[in-house]
Structures are given as structure tokens and as C-alpha cells.
């Protein structure tokens, strides 16, 4: 996630997509986007790969399911057989609800934990918070960032290019120090 550079605010997702396309054509390569909902076209232009979090989810979901089933089998059918309602001690259908619920629990907890690790949460402060009105990135505004490290970036020229492409305003990101 970029910490320094230019941040342009666009009124619509289409305007942001058009701007990324135009800048990409000119040779810019290091972007970041902040939008209220996912824009697959932008993800592709930014070169983002699909997240691999599903493999983490699958591993933990299946492990929890297997563990839950084995635990029930061991405790209720093997180690200390319990007869309930004249059903056999090894009553496989009765084990299924717990197995299923533990699969769901393992999947959701592991995804939550993996997500926090991958995106670096908890993070109490980020340079974008210094931009007034940035909270609308989660409501109805689309922000495009051009990273300071982009070899093509020239503050004045890039600012003008962004405004020409329909940006409502362009702010400088990462100039303010974090609050003490």
C-alpha cells in the first residue's frame, strides 16, 4: 500500500478506470486505487493477482472438520462408547452437524487471521488519513494514487495530467508526519 505520492479523487469508477488506462499508456506503472467496491478492470491494470487466501481457508476448514469428526468418534464411539436413544455408539450421521460447524468455524477464523496478517492490520495510522475527505473512498468516491517511486512521476506534470483526465482534485500524499 503506497505511502508517498499523488492521490487523485474521481467522481465515478469509470473515470478512474479511464485514467488508469491513459496513464498506463503513457508509461506509468506504479498505481494504487482506493474504491468503495472492487473494480476488476483496475485490478487487472494494476497487475494484481488473485488472492491465494482460499488455499488457507481450504486447509484449515478441512483440518477442523477432520479433527471434529475424529474427536467425536474417539470420545463417543471408541474410548468410552455412549449409547444414546438406542442408537449405535458409532452413529456417523450424528457427528455430521458438529463436523460441518467446525469446518465453517475453522474456515472463517483462519481467513480472518490470514487477512489481518496479509494486509497488515491492525494499523492505527496511514498517510491517506491526512487527506481531507478520504473517508468517501468507502462511500462514493474513487481515489487513484501514483506512487512516488514511479520513475515517470513528475509532480506538476502528473497533477495536470490527472486533472485533465477528470480528477476533482489532486493531493500530495505522505508529506505530513504522523501525529505524535
Amino acid at each position: 500500500m503506497m505511502r508517498r505520492g499523488l492521490l487523485a479523487e474521481f467522481p465515478t469508477g469509470d473515470a478512474l478506470i479511464a485514467a488508469v488506462r491513459a496513464l498506463h499508456q503513457e508509461g506509468y506503472s506504479r498505481f494504487d486505487a482506493f474504491t468503495p467496491y472492487p473494480l476488476p478492470a483496475v485490478q487487472r491494470l494494476l497487475g494484481w493477482r488473485r488472492s491465494r487466501i482460499n488455499y488457507i481457508a481450504a486447509f484449515f476448514g478441512l483440518s477442523f472438520a477432520l479433527g471434529a469428526y475424529l474427536l467425536q468418534w474417539w470420545t463417543a464411539a471408541r474410548d468410552y462408547p455412549v449409547i444414546v436413544g438406542s442408537r449405535p455408539a458409532y452413529a456417523a450421521p450424528a457427528f455430521v452437524p458438529i463436523t460441518f460447524e467446525m469446518c465453517v468455524l475453522g474456515t472463517s477464523l483462519s481467513v480472518l487471521a490470514a487477512l489481518f496478517v496479509i494486509i497488515g492490520l491492525p494499523r492505527l495510522w496511514h498517510p491517506v488519513f491526512a487527506i481531507p475527505g478520504f473517508e468517501r473512498a468507502t462511500i462514493d468516491r474513487f481515489f487513484l494514487g501514483v506512487d512516488e517511486s514511479d520513475p515517470y512521476l513528475d509532480r506538476d506534470r502528473t497533477t495536470r495530467a490527472l486533472l485533465d483526465l477528470g480528477a476533482l482534485r489532486v493531493s500530495l500524499l505522505g508529506e505530513e508526519a504522523p501525529p505524535p
Binding site: G85, R87, P93, A94, V96
Partner: peptide
Amino acid sequence: AFFQFFLIWIAD
């Protein structure tokens, strides 16, 4: 399908 079976199986 499973829970229709399950509820009937467990009530017996």
C-alpha cells in the same frame, strides 16, 4: 437432503 434425513433418523 441431509437434514431431512438427519431429523428423521435421530427421532426414529
